[in-house]
Structure formats: structure tokens, C-alpha cells
Write a protein that binds this DNA or RNA. Structure first.
Lengths: 190, 190, 190, 190
DNA sequence: CATGAATGAGCTTTCATTCAT
DNA sequence: GATGAATGAAAGCTCATTCAT
């Protein structure tokens, strides 16, 4: 149980953790497998025992967030398209983001790169679908902006407010409140 | 004067244009100087005649937007900190973004990479400064979020609404309207 | 075990050998890693598996001679500063040079380059220290020249007499004799 | 006559001076024409107005010393092969070296490189010829070493004693004295 | 007497990947 | 569950050189 001993069994997980950290910090392309291996004190070849390619590492890391979003979309589509549903969607999205914050940051900061990967469009599409669920199909352009802003405000909460002082949970709630306001406002003008 | 003839005198400009396009599309790191050179039908060495390094190309491309933001900040700081000033700040920011849209997209999509470059903090700092100008120093957390959202909504307008149908200028105005609403709302609760 | 089979385990050594040979023959700067790799029938990347940089190769090659000289200096400093000690110093230096002749030739013929490398001063300094050990601190200028000449005559023996006919060991002894004469002469006038 | 004005007419000479300085200091290969041009505040293309190639610059710089040596050899061959002639040869050689010291240093420190250039063997040959003139054809090996050492001691004077304190002219004379001693000694055992 | 613009060849270095052990 | 040794491809960059102006 000594933490200085070579852990065993968890190497796969440790690779994912270190990779995500480095990919976010220094960029996916700028991060070489050599760096990841060195930081873990294993050889590059060891990485290849656990993952088929570099891209595979990133896929595995991003997979959970993908599933989360899919579930959210599925849920949203199954509900009646009321304001209350939409509010609940935002609430759930907020929680999902909070949970998967590091992965989300990575995606945000490596958009150009990620687009070329096979995950590619997948995430963008999901965000569009999600955003569509918040909006009436016949919404005016301004309201379109409002619902979109509602969603993206939450990303901003993750990024721009990251180095603002204050309890993360407080910040999350403040962000959610503003997002809900935007959503409500978009609905009022119906 | 035929456009298929080797243009002269404009090579530097053409490098910047093609580079920005490729950097945005495929990512800064994934875009090699070979690709840029090939697309311009010159040799790599020609790029190095006009720019000292790859990073230099990106710096030169991003420079104008930097100046624009600095001017905006300077202006904002010279004005009385009234609601009207802040609204005008948003209006001007909106126009600046519209003008420099391609550069801005590049920065947005290559954040991780850009952070490592020497432009690095420069842009983030400017956005923070700008955002500070929109906010009362004693603003509640929710209002902090609102002013921040006001600014970032405009980025979203650039990105997420890019492939929504409609006249760009209409979209810009709709986005600006929502941003102004957020700003006003943040002020009401003073 | 056939010598035309790809040897294994000795690649590092083979790189050093070929590198030293080419560096001496055609100059460090003029010798590209491609040439070294080709002559070894491996890829350039293989060189980088064994050495971190081109400079590293040269450092590793030169290291042994450095140690030899350090030991010699240490020994010299531990002895009484008598004529006999100095003579023995020359004798030992002569042997060291004979052993490390190829490395020494390389250093001699690439002085300007080596100076810029990180070995830089190291060797020059050692020769100066060694030369100081041969000399009385209050020696007249002429005697200063004589002891210096004693040392450098040995280098000449290595270089200028290289293509003079005769048994190498005979030549070494003749050179040593002249050097010892110079040393003795320098002492007489004390 | 103001020294800050762009001198004219002497550009060729200035190129040679700067080139020799840089070639000696940082090595011929490591010194690029760009560096030379920059230091002279002209363009690379300007160098090509004055010299056909990089090698040409070095040839032009080294030419004078070559002629000097040729004259010395010619003179030596025309004299009777007496000890006095040989002594005078050394004296004249000493002066030639003192005059052409910078060029000589360059050759000394860039041997490997120079060998590949078209000057190549020329200088080595001349030194061998010169050295032969100092020696009786039937000299014993030890005396062969002594005459060779006599010559090379003078190079050492240029190099190793360069950063020893003292008047250069005094040093030159001390070196010459030792060299003459070596020569005389070589003759005595005839 | 010189420059501005460009090229072709080559350099050192790094990377993702492979595979026998 | 991993390593040691290597590869093929490509990257960013520099250099000597050319030539129209």
C-alpha cells in the first residue's frame, strides 16, 4: 500500500490521468508519448501495451463524457418539451460539466486538433443537438442566441471563472442561475 | 497582370493569409510549413525569408487583433464607468470581433497551443481586463457571471452560430442585443 | 556469429568508432549524422536512441581521454616537484597519448569547433595545468617555452610524424627523448 | 573621413578581416555568410559581388601566407645547406609567422575543414618541404624529431603562449632561441 | 556596388509506432 | 505486463548560392 511502490494494475488509469493533464496543459500535439511515459516512469512501449495508438488514449479519456451527453440527450428527447424540462436539462448539464470538468477543458482548448481526430464532429454534434432541445423550433434569432448563450455560459463558468476566487460549487450555482434566466427570458417572448 | 503569373511584393501577405487559414482549419501544430509553402507554390525557405520562425508567422497574424483590443481597453479606461460606457464597450467589441473574426477563431480553437507560444497570456489578460471594465468592483457573483457571459456570448456568436443560416450582420446584432441585456441586468441589481 | 550478421549489443560502441573516424577525417561539422548512420547501416533515428545529440556522441568519445589526463594531473600534483617527477610525467603523458591517439588527433584537428562545444575549455585547461606542473613557477621565459615545447613536441610526434616511415613505438621513444632533453635543459638553467 | 560613414572601396578588405576573425573564433563551418554580412551591415548578396564562393573568401585570406612560405622555400633551396642557412630559415620563418599570425591561427584551428578545401594539402606540403630543408637527409630519427620540433615549437609559441603575459616580441625571441637550440643540437650529433 | 527575393539541398532532431524478447 | 532497440516519416530550420533589378 506504500505509495512509492510501483503500483500495479492501475497503469492504464494512470496513463489516462497523466495524458489528460498533459494534453490539456501543453496541447495534444505538443505532448509526446515520450513525455507521458517519462512522467509515469515507464517506457513508451508500455503505453502501447495498454493503448493501440496515441489517439486511442484520447478516445478512452473522452468516452465517458460522450456517454454522459448521450444519456442527457436521450433523456431530453423523451420528455415533453416544456420549459421545466429545459430547465432540468440545464441543471443536469451543469452537473455533468462539473463532474467531467478536466475532460471538458481539454476538448475546449484543443478544438482544432480534436476536429481532425476521429471523435471529430461527435462532440460538436451533441452540443448542437442539446442546444436544439432548449429551443422552440420557431424561435426568433434573438432567442436562438439566448438559448445558445445559456449553454455556453456554462462552459465559460468552467473556463473564465476558473481563476476567480470563490467556492467552485457557489460559482457553479451562480452560473446556472444566469443560464436559467437566459432560458426563461427566451421563453417569455414566445 | 494576369492573376496566374507569380505575384510579387505580396508574398508576405499571402503567407499570412494561407497560414491563418490552415492554422484555423487543421490546427497550428498539425499544419506544417511544407503545407503552407506548397499551397503558395513557393519553397519552405521562402517562408523563412519573410518570417524568422513558424511562431513569428502566427505572431504577425495576431498582432492586429492585439492592437485593436488594446485600443479598446485604453478607451474604456478613459471613460466614466457608467452603464452607457459599458454598453458602448460591448458595441465596439462586437465590431472588433466581426472585423477580426478569422484571427479570433484561430485563437479560440488553438488555445492550448497558443498558451505555450509567446503571445501566451497576452490575450487572456486583455480579455480579463476588458471584462473587468464591464463590471462594478463590488458586483455580486451572479452579476460577475452576467458580465462575463455578456462578453463570451459574443465569442459564441462567432463560433456556434457560424453555421446557422442567416445574414451575418443580423446575427451579430442579435448577439449584441443579448449581451447588452445581460449587461443591463447585471447593473439593475446594484 | 558470422560477422556480416547484424551485430547486437555493440551498436553504441560502433557509433562511437565510426563517428570518431569520420569526425577526424572530414571534420565534425562536415560530418552529418546521415553519413554516420549510412556507414553503420542503421537509420539516423537509431543514433538518437543511443545518444541524445550529435554533441553527445563527441562528448562520450572524448570522455576517456579527459579522465586519463585528470588522473595524470592528480598524480603529478601529489608528487614532490622534482625533475624526476616531471620526467615521469612526460613519460606517462607520452603513453596516454599513444593510447588515445585517434581521439587526440580529432581534438587537434577540430579545435575551433571543439571550442564551441561544451567540452570547450576543459581540454585546454588540462593541458595548461599539466604544462604548469613541468615548470618551476619562477622559470625564465625561455624555460617556459622549453617546458611547453616539451609537451607539444609530443603532439607533433603524433601528427607530423604520422606519415614518416618507421615503427610507431620507435618514433614515440625518439619524441620522448627530445622532450626529456628539453625538460632537462629547462631545469639546468635554474 | 568620419568612421561612422559607410566606407567605400574597402569592402573587400573588410570582408576578409571579419571573415578571418569569425572563421578563427567560431570555426569555418559554423560561420555562415549571413553572420559575416550582418556584422558588416551589408547583405549576403554583397559578399557575392566581391567573392565567388565562401571558399573563395578563405582562399583569398590565406593566399598571402602561402606566397610567403613559397618564397621562404625558394630562398632556402637556393642557399647552401649549411647550419647557418638553416638558422636563418628559422629566423625568417619566425618573422613570417609573427606577421601572418591570425591567418596561421585560423589554419591551425580548422585543420580538418581546411584539408577538405582546395587549399587542402598545399600548406601541409609546404611545411613538410620547409622542415626537410632543416634536416640532413641521413639524420637519425631523434634528429628528425628535433628539427620538426624546432619548427612546430614556433607554432606553439603562437598558440599556447598567446595568453601568457609578456611582450609578444619577447616571447617570439624566446621561442626562436629554443628552436635554434633544437636545430643546433640536431646538427651536433652529425 | 549592392539588394530583395527566392531556391535546393541538407541538417539536426523528434515522433508515433513496431516487435522480438 | 513490460522493455530495448530500432525504424520511416516528417518537422523546423539554415545554408550557400543565384539573379533580376
Amino acid at each position: 500500500m506504500a505509495s512509492t511502490q510501483p503500483r500495479r494494475g492501475d497503469t492504464r488509469q494512470r496513463i489516462q490521468d497523466v495524458a489528460l493533464e498533459l494534453f490539456t496543459e501543453r496541447g495534444y500535439d505538443k505532448t509526446s508519448l515520450r513525455e507521458i511515459a517519462e512522467r509515469l516512469e515507464v517506457t513508451k512501449a508500455a503505453l502501447y501495451y495498454h493503448f493501440k495508438t496515441k489517439e486511442d488514449i484520447v478516445l478512452s479519456v473522452v468516452e465517458d463524457l460522450g456517454r454522459l451527453l448521450d444519456e442527457l440527450i436521450e433523456w431530453g428527447q423523451a420528455q415533453p418539451h416544456t420549459l421545466e424540462t429545459k430547465k432540468e436539462l440545464l441543471r443536469r448539464y451543469s452537473e455533468a460539466l462539473a463532474d467531467a470538468a478536466p475532460v471538458f477543458r481539454f476538448l475546449q482548448e484543443n478544438q482544432a486538433t480534436v476536429r481532425e481526430l476521429s471523435i471529430g464532429g461527435a462532440f460538436k454534434e451533441r452540443l448542437v443537438t442539446l442546444s436544439d432541445l432548449l429551443r422552440a423550433p420557431d424561435a426568433a434569432l434573438t432567442d436562438h442566441v439566448r438559448t445558445t448563450a445559456a449553454m455556453f455560459t456554462m462552459h465559460v463558468g468552467l473556463m473564465a471563472l476558473h481563476d476567480v476566487e470563490g467556492d467552485p460549487e457557489d460559482k457553479r450555482k451562480a452560473v446556472l442561475e444566469v443560464a436559467l434566466d437566459l432560458l426563461t427570458e427566451a421563453h417569455r417572448s414566445r
